[in-house]
Amino acid sequence: MPEQAQRTKTALVTGASSGIGFELCKELSARGFRVFGAARRLEPMESLREYGVTPLKADVSDLDSVLELKKKVIELTDGKLDLLYNNAGQSCTVPALDVSDEWALQCLQVNVLGPIRMTREFAPLLIAAQGIVVFTGSLAGICPFPWGSVYGASKAAIHQYASVLHLELEPLGVKVLNVVTGGVDTNIADTRDLPKDSVYASPEMLEAFELRKKMAEKNKPMSPATYSKKVVNDILSSRDPVHVYRGKMATFMGIVMYLVPTRVIEYAFRIKFKLNPAFDALREKYSKRKVD
């Protein structure tokens, strides 16, 4: 029997302490993978041991932590990694004009540089196994969701990174998959308030801002367990797309963004997120300032 058939496939999932990452670890283990779940805190992952998952502490925004994680995974495996799942994420639901350097850097470190450094450092293990690297993308990377400029930009960056990586890793036998994710019932929602000195600070805007923060919750999102089953099916498929659309409304919105003019989409979003009263108040406020 060939050596490859005798090996137990290995998987490393970041952001495994809750939500999508937690359920992915369980699903991959159920499908026969030896799974390593990585997150900044070990305690929330302890119950994953019941499913045969090994929790490992790691912070994808810190290179030294990533290198230490790589060392541990090499020690615990045969130097081959069949699946790297870049799932760790950081929300940033703040108006574009109010995003501080600190908030922007925090989001970009986790959502962009984190997956980039993880992929770079674990590439030798993936190449040795001719494995697959997966990214948790988002509809936010293709849709102009209000107050999601930096988060959306981080996901758009990962979408493009995955697209180019798919081309570059093909001769090395490593597959690349980006999961453009719609509504999934997780705790990633941002809890920050609208800054008091924001140009958008008004009673009308506060209602719209709170509605936006609860977007996924109010749209009957897909359960992380259901989402994980669909994505693991994609991973194990013989197909080799760059992008797949999973989660509530993912496929539908992907089609809409491809076919519908931007102005029509913006009009629909103003209605959906109750922005019209807030925008009218803003226009009146700043037109008076101009006259004064």
Rank of each mutant, 00 (worst) to 15 (best):
M1Y: 07
Q6S: 11
V13F: 06
V13Y: 02
V13R: 00
G15L: 01
A16T: 06
E23F: 04
L24I: 03
S29R: 05
R31P: 13
R31D: 10
A38D: 05
A39S: 15
R40Q: 02
R40H: 09
R40P: 02
P44S: 07
R49A: 11
E50D: 11
V60R: 05
D64C: 08
I74M: 01
E75N: 06
E75Y: 00
L76H: 10
D78H: 09
D78M: 03
D78V: 04
G79W: 15
D82P: 03
G89W: 04
S91V: 13
S91R: 00
L97Q: 12
D98K: 03
E102C: 02
L108F: 07
L113N: 09
R117H: 04
T119D: 08
T119Q: 05
E121V: 15
P124T: 06
L125W: 07
G131N: 02
F135K: 12
S138N: 08
L139N: 10
G141R: 02
I142Y: 05
C143Q: 07
C143F: 05
P144A: 08
G148L: 12
S149M: 01
V150G: 01
Y151K: 15
Y151S: 00
G152P: 01
A157E: 05
H159S: 09
Q160P: 02
V164E: 11
L165Q: 12
H166N: 03
E168A: 02
E168P: 08
P171Y: 00
L172P: 07
V184K: 01
D185E: 10
D185V: 06
D185R: 13
I188V: 05
A189K: 06
T191F: 09
D193Y: 10
L194D: 04
K196N: 11
S198K: 14
V199M: 12
P203L: 12
P203Y: 10
E207W: 05
E207G: 09
F209Q: 14
E210P: 10
L211G: 15
R212W: 08
M215G: 09
A216I: 14
A216M: 09
M222T: 11
K229W: 03
V231I: 03
V231T: 08
D240G: 06
P241Y: 10
K248N: 01
A250F: 00
T251S: 11
F252G: 01
I255P: 02
V256H: 01
M257E: 11
M257S: 07
Y258C: 07
L259T: 03
A268C: 09
F269N: 00
I271L: 15
F273T: 08
N276C: 07
N276I: 14
P277Y: 08
A278I: 06
D280S: 12
V291L: 15
